[in-house]
Amino acid sequence: MKRFSWFNATSLTLGFAFLYVPMIILVVYSFNASKLVTVWAGFSTQWYGELIRNEEFLNAAWVTIKVAVMSSTIATVLGTMAAYVLVRAGRFNGRTLFSGMIYAPLVMPEVITGLSLLLLFIGIGLDRGVLTIVLAHTTFSMCYVSVVVSSRLVSFDKSLEEAALDLGCSPFEAFRLVTLPIIAPAVISGWLLAFTLSLDDLVIASFTTGPSATTLPIKIFSAVRLGVSPEINALSTIMIAIVTVGVITASLITKQAAVRQARDERMAERPA
């Protein structure tokens, strides 16, 4: 604490102002009565009303949520399997290629991922729409899930699993009854990460979608290209509000879970 100087206080204040002021301005101007986003003309919620009546946005929001739920769920299953393979399966033929394919999508520019998947879908004659976006999103987000889950699996005490096996569990039962409950927080945060990545994605969705499916980011992007509009501000505000509530709730829950786990561990360690 003694080294916490004025310099530090200033850099924290300026840094967080830089991170948050643009978003606050965005939120404030969503309640602006004027169509001009830059001139303040009094408080109004009319843009929210127009947003709710805008069918195109509602449809896009629905498509986006459907895609995000499906892709993040499949990605969580595949990603957890992949993490288990990376950490527990030992050596097998093609392991290097496998771990390469898990890490490469994390650093791959979205334009390349999008382009290559589109060329695949055209090559095999798959109609582009919700299905192709789900396939695309699942592929890159399963890699994020597997990174999150494998970091938890690495720090996990393998002897617990072995104990379950010694006591007569099948490998699957041992996974379900011992491993899964312990890695559950990582699996859940993997799912949340996959869900947000899917909600957020513009580039890969633009490449892999067809005329039948427009996601919210695609819709926002085409609206925003023409300039700033108060309806988009209103939409952004709703999205920011959902994320903020979600992140704060999640951090409170994990904090509670950590406290409970620490207490349980203390109880377990106490000599009988």
């Binding site: 965005l26 926002i220 300039g227 700033v228 999205m239």
Partner: peptide, 14 residues
């Protein structure tokens, strides 16, 4: 966790 697109958009108005 907030949309990348929205964070970029916020600067257009500023």
């Amino acid at each position: 966790w907030t949309s990348f697109l929205i964070r970029v958009y916020a600067w257009m108005g500023i």
